[in-house]
Design a binder for these strands. Structure first.
Length: 829
RNA sequence: GCGAAAGUGGCGGAAUUGGUAGACGCGCAAGCCUCAGGAGCUUGUGGUCGCAAGGCCGUGGGGGUUCGAGUCCCCCCUUUCGCACCA
């Protein structure tokens, strides 16, 4: 196969020819004004990293292209746009390491990636292309930001935030995994900084409820989002602190255990901590301890394995239920940004509080007791979270559960001690980044006017090109005098620009709307087009965005909905997560996700050179179920390549078929079956089994041609159907055969074949015969055979007779068209 | 620890959702064709016993439901993923 000359067809010439023609004829361009039978499909737009795409990336795009071509042939007006998630850290790092400007680097990468898409035969409507790092795009990020600011949905606050010391920037909670920076793996530190947030928590309930309206999403992703939002119901209870003339509100999911609350615990960051320390005799030592805990990296401070540590702050609060004075502590296991940043500790019924109480010898009081369990707190060896019944008082005898909680909530409210409350795990979205290569946040700081939003007419706030990339800590933008120095839009006096840029997930939170009117310089997007084409009919991307991108995009879509810009609340009603391609990595000695850093990538270039893009495409789709992780095998490429070679040879020999043939009905049946199987499989994204069905169909056609057993007409019809069905998988070769068969128009314009149920019926059926569930024989019968006759046929079979010798028939189970199972037992005649 | 998904030949994977386990492909073996083959074609290919006909075993392990279980139920093991002190 050296050089490809041995191939039956010249894949290089054919692929180049069709790629050129599709591009020249702009076959994928859609006029969005006409939305008849619209089908908006979308691949998550890629980050144009400098690494060339490997076959693992290819899976994603090939799958999307196959779907696109299929939908086109089904007669849908399919829109398949592509763009670039072009802001982000790697560009800036490349600038520091190689001295290339992020913009130039990014645009060059885009050029290379486009070439790669082209070589795969992938069709995008390039007239809709968007690039998020261009002012024409990012000005609308700024526009959205200003609207959020107006509505109080964007705000600035000082908070302990995640800081990546390697990327020199803060990170959103969603970008921290196991206490480390998701991008570079460096342990994240805590820094107390003034930052910009988007109030996604205001949408927590709607984001959660909306998941129930998404049958087209994988359960796994919905579950991940539910867990991330983390809705908890319970109560907020206020504990008076007489000495400070304050109350400390706590959130608890177990107000029913209030009588067992023997101390309070505040997060070290809690605002009352400082006041309590000030009144404490050992205030210096305490303050030191508190500041040490505050500065402990998240990964060390949090986590179930971290030992619980705390200090008595010396104050006392009143447990409203018992009237008792209880101590106030601070501890590392109480989080500052969840609930109220303070808890009531009920050691008897919460394991964490129990561990802490035992470590510091704090009282343990049982509210619920079990008949056979300990009757006193001292005797407990572990918390009993949901067993037993309440021992005393007006709620005596109740068992733990939602009803009991509800009764306590009503009781708290009646007494004015607290109220029912819902709390979310979800935190507000931190969007500030101390980096250059992102959308400038459009606000100005004026000594006289304070924080002033940049007026719409002054947008975009342009990212300056001429910055210095030194690799020093701090945002290069902050050192750019001409950028920072500005005038206040309100009073005209000198002012400073905000130098933080936006998280790139802002860019990707609404881009699908911009595709519909990408060059509009007057407005963010065309509302009418957005409502006609949106929401996206099919969204395709990796599971790694299950939370980050998909949650942010759902949030922003709701915001835009509330602004009256779109009619829908869910941007992507149907989501498909393709699986990764894995391969053995020498470095680790394991089969792992294909990636440059693991050194286990496979370049598509030599494959395309030697066997063609069609081969890679068919192989990629054939490899395994698209949602599953699959292992790449260089060897197995030969199968799909042989398959395409055979197709070519058969197409060339089709004229040899005789004018009449005995196998025509059989071939026709196989043709209809192939149409049915491929259509059904594609509708369910089962590309792998669709390829199998085509292989089987080719085997039948191939035999018919080989044996000259079917007529030329039947063979030609089978071939044409075959080429149509295969087109989404192997577009170049199929176009070529189609054209050579005298068709003037692209296969994309042809109508997807339809099958006729009546043609699928077989005249003769093979019925499986079981005796006591074991396969014993097969009998061939007419399809319409009555059950009685079938039984007789089966019982007459010599093999059945033999196996039944000396046994008695108890029962005969008949599954029409499939099998007969004879149930027998010992004895009889 | 909690939650979810998945375990099928030498390999990737099928199985109309309770009805022939292993489709399709890779690999392997034998044969044909060929100056040659890393090309093409044909046949075979879960294990085991048997000359054969055929038998027995077989979908991570163990139980169960059923005429019938890869598929449903219970227990266990392994792997992967998500969350991980969220009160």
């Amino acid at each position: 196969m050296r050089g490809g000359e041995m191939s039956g067809f010249d894949h290089r010439a054919i692929e180049a020819k069709w790629q050129e023609r599709w591009e020249r004829q702009r076959v994928a361009e859609v006029d969005v004004r006409a939305a008849k039978a619209k089908y908006y499909m979308l691949m998550m737009f890629p980050y144009p990293s400098g690494d060339r795409l490997h076959v693992g990336h290819g899976r994603n795009y090939i799958l999307g292209d196959a779907l696109y071509r299929y939908q086109r042939m089904r007669g849908r007006r399919a829109l398949n746009p592509m763009g670039w998630d072009a802001f982000g850290l790697p560009a800036e790092n490349a600038a520091i390491q190689r001295g290339v400007h992020p913009r130039d680097w990014t645009l060059e990468n885009i050029r290379v990636m486009k070439q790669q898409f082209r070589r795969w035969g992938i069709l995008y409507d390039w007239s809709k292309e968007i690039t998020s790092c261009q002012p024409e795009y990012y000005r609308w990020n700024q526009w959205i930001f200003l609207r959020l600011l107006e509505k109080g949905l964007a705000y600035r606050k000082r908070a302990a935030v995640n800081w990546c010391p390697s990327c020199h920037t803060v990170l959103a909670n969603e970008q921290v995994t196991e206490g480390s920076c998701e991008r570079c793996g460096t342990a994240v530190e805590q820094r107390d900084l003034e930052q910009w947030f988007l109030r996604i928590t205001a949408y927590a309930e709607r984001l959660l409820a909306g998941l129930d309206e998404l049958p087209g999403w994988p359960e796994k992703v919905k579950l991940m989002q539910r867990n991330w939002i983390g809705r908890s119901t319970g109560a907020e209870i206020s504990f008076p602190v007489p000495a400070l003339d304050e109350t400390i509100p706590v959130f608890t999911t177990r107000p029913d255990t209030l009588h067992g609350a023997t101390f309070l615990v505040l997060a070290p960051e809690h605002p009352l901590v400082a006041r309590l320390i000030a009144a404490h005799p050992e205030s210096t030592a305490l303050a030191e301890w508190v500041s040490r805990v505050k500065n402990t990296p998240r990964i060390q401070r949090e986590g179930a394995d971290t030992p619980k540590e705390g200090r008595d702050l010396g104050g006392a609060a009143i447990n409203p239920a018992t009237g008792e004075r209880i101590p106030i502590w601070t501890a590392n296991y109480v989080l500052p940004d969840y609930g109220t940043g303070a808890i009531m500790a009920v050691p008897a019924h919460d394991q964490r509080d129990f561990d802490f109480a035992r470590a510091y010898d704090l009282p343990v009081r049982l509210v619920y007791v079990t008949d056979d369990g300990p009757q006193e707190g001292e005797a407990l060896t572990a918390a009993i979270p949901d067993e037993g019944t309440i021992r005393e008082g007006e709620f005596s005898g109740l068992a733990p559960g939602p009803d009991t909680v509800a009764r306590f909530v009503a009781w708290l409210e009646a007494n004015g001690w607290g109220r029912g409350q819902v709390t979310y795990r979800l935190r507000d979205w931190l969007i500030s980044r101390q980096r250059y290569w992102g959308t400038p946040i459009p606000v100005v700081y004026c000594d006289a006017c304070g924080l002033v939003p940049v007026p719409d007419e002054q947008l975009p706030v342009l990212l300056p090109y001429d910055v210095e990339f030194s690799g020093r800590e701090g945002n290069p933008l902050a050192r750019h005098e001409a950028f920072v120095a500005t005038t206040c839009p309100r009073c005209g006096k000198p002012a400073r620009r905000e130098t933080d840029t936006m998280d790139t997930f802002v860019d990707s939170s609404w881009y699908y709307l911009r595709y519909l009117s990408p060059r509009d310089s007057q407005k963010i997007f065309d509302r009418e087009a957005a409502n006609r084409w949106g929401p996206v009919d099919q969204y395709i991307g990796g599971i790694e965005h299950a939370i980050l991108h998909l949650l942010y995009a759902r949030f922003v879509c709701r915001v835009l909905h509330d602004f009256g810009l779109v009619d829908f609340e869910e941007p992507f009603p149907n989501l498909f997560n393709q699986g990764m391609i894995t391969r053995f990595a020498e470095q680790t000695g394991r089969v792992e996700k294909m990636s440059k850093s693991r050194g286990n990538t496979v370049s598509p270039d030599p494959i395309i050179d030697e066997m063609g893009a069609d081969t890679e495409r068919v192989y990629t789709l054939f490899l395994g179920p698209p949602e599953a992780e699959v292992e790449w095998s260089d060897e197995a490429l030969a199968g799909p390549n042989r398959f395409l070679q055979r197709l070519w040879r058969i197409a060339e020999r089709i004229d040899e078929a005789p004018p009449t043939g005995v196998a025509d009905p059989e071939l026709e049946r196989a043709r209809h079956e192939a149409i049915q199987r491929v259509t059904r499989d594609l509708d369910r994204f089962k590309f792998n089994t669709a390829v199998s069905a085509l292989m089987e169909f080719l085997n039948v056609l191939s035999r018919a041609v080989e044996e000259r057993s079917a007529s030329k007409l039947a063979c030609e019809q089978a071939l044409e159907t075959f080429v149509q069905l295969l087109h989404p998988f192997a577009p170049h070769l199929t176009e070529e055969i189609w054209e050579r068969r005298g068709h003037g128009e692209s296969l994309l314009e042809s109508d997807w074949p339809t099958w006729d149920e009546s043609r699928l019926k077989r005249e003769r059926l093979t019925i499986v015969v079981q005796i006591d569930g074991k396969l014993r024989d097969r009998v061939e019968v007419d399809a319409g055979i009555p059950e009685k006759a079938l039984r007789e046929t089966v019982l007459a079979s010599p093999k059945v007779q033999e196996h039944l010798a000396g046994r008695e028939i108890v029962r005969v189970v008949v599954v029409p068209g499939r099998l007969v199972n004879i149930v027998s037992r010992e004895g009889g005649s």
